[in-house]
């Protein structure tokens, strides 16, 4: 009997049990991409690392949708009595930073609404609203921009033309983007979507699998069933090994990873491991437009 060997055995068993229990707890958890991004940024900030915002290199369509998203994000923040000036400032700042404005952005994108409806609210509820609506609350996440955000004329025009950007009247990218204010994950450019073979849909379950991955099969089954159950949802499975560039771009480290994309091609949620069917349906409920 070897004392060192016994010590190693005990240590390994303890470590393995910890890893196993942790894995069991976290496996398949569907996390909100925006909240995750915020948390990562907070951790980096605490560690004293500056986060670098890369310039937007998306197609004009994507820029339009991003701008509309920022607008609707601010609107949502206002609805919840949030700090609208902060969000609007952030949008204005990114606009001033020289990011090209969306050419086909509709006039009534709703960015000025907050000034109207932003009634001061007690501090507690504001915080709750902020955590419930990460996109609206976080100035860092406000996508580049809408010029002339806080001009009084716009406010007046806004007051006349209605409050929230109308999703029924504007089919296409903006409609889809405006619908979901909580989506502030990565917005995928069209080239990436094409390379992964993703067609348009209300919501996309994008699964990354690999050959040596036993749980990928379970995710495939669950995603397929959910896609069949819910209209407007498509399931796309991608072999991670043959798309390593995209895997890097989307920050995927393990298989199976399931991304939920909204109609505008934004990564809204992410799950590593095997999510349960009810969890997945609930997560899609946040992404899909209200029936």
């Amino acid at each position: 009997m070897d004392a060192l060997g016994i010590a190693v055995i005990v240590a390994v068993l303890v470590v393995a049990t910890t890893i196993g229990l942790w894995h069991r707890r976290t496996d398949g958890m569907i996390r909100d991409e925006a909240a995750d991004k915020k948390r990562r940024a907070a951790i980096l900030a605490a560690a004293g690392v500056e986060t670098v915002e890369f310039p937007d290199r998306k197609s004009s369509n994507a820029v339009a949708s991003a701008a509309a998203k920022a607008a609707s994000g601010a609107a949502a923040a206002a609805v919840h009595g949030n700090d609208t000036v902060r969000a609007a400032n952030a949008a204005a700042r990114s606009a001033a930073a020289g990011v090209p404005a969306a050419p086909d952005l509709p006039a009534d994108s709703g960015i000025a609404v907050p000034v109207d409806s932003g009634v001061p609210a007690p501090a507690g509820p504001v915080d709750e609203a902020a955590s419930a609506e990460p996109a609206g609350a976080d100035p860092q996440l406000a996508e580049p921009g809408v010029p002339g955000v806080r001009e009084p004329g716009d406010v007046a025009a806004e007051r006349k033309s209605g409050v929230v950007p109308d999703s029924r009247e504007e089919p296409g990218v903006v409609e889809a983007a405006a619908r979901d204010a909580s989506a502030a994950g990565e917005s995928l450019d069209q080239g990436l979507l094409d390379r992964l073979g993703i067609g348009p849909a209300q919501a996309t379950l994008l699964q990354f699998s690999s050959a040596f991955c036993a749980p990928c099969r379970a995710v495939r089954r669950i995603s397929g069933e959910v896609a069949e159950l819910l209209p407007g949802v498509q399931h796309v499975e991608v072999d991670a090994e043959s798309h390593l560039a995209e895997v890097r771009e989307l920050n995927i480290w393990r298989t199976p990873t399931l991304l939920i994309l909204d109609a505008g091609g934004q990564v809204v949620k992410r799950a590593t491991g095997v999510p349960s069917k009810p969890q997945l349906i609930a997560a899609l409920g946040d992404v899909l437009p209200d029936a």
Partner: peptide, 17 residues
């Protein structure tokens, strides 16, 4: 054995990356 977790399979994609 205890958790049905395949460590090599989990690490495979990371290694490939």
């Amino acid at each position: 054995a205890a958790f049905g977790l395949c460590l090599g399979c989990e690490a495979y994609l990371a290694l490939r990356r």
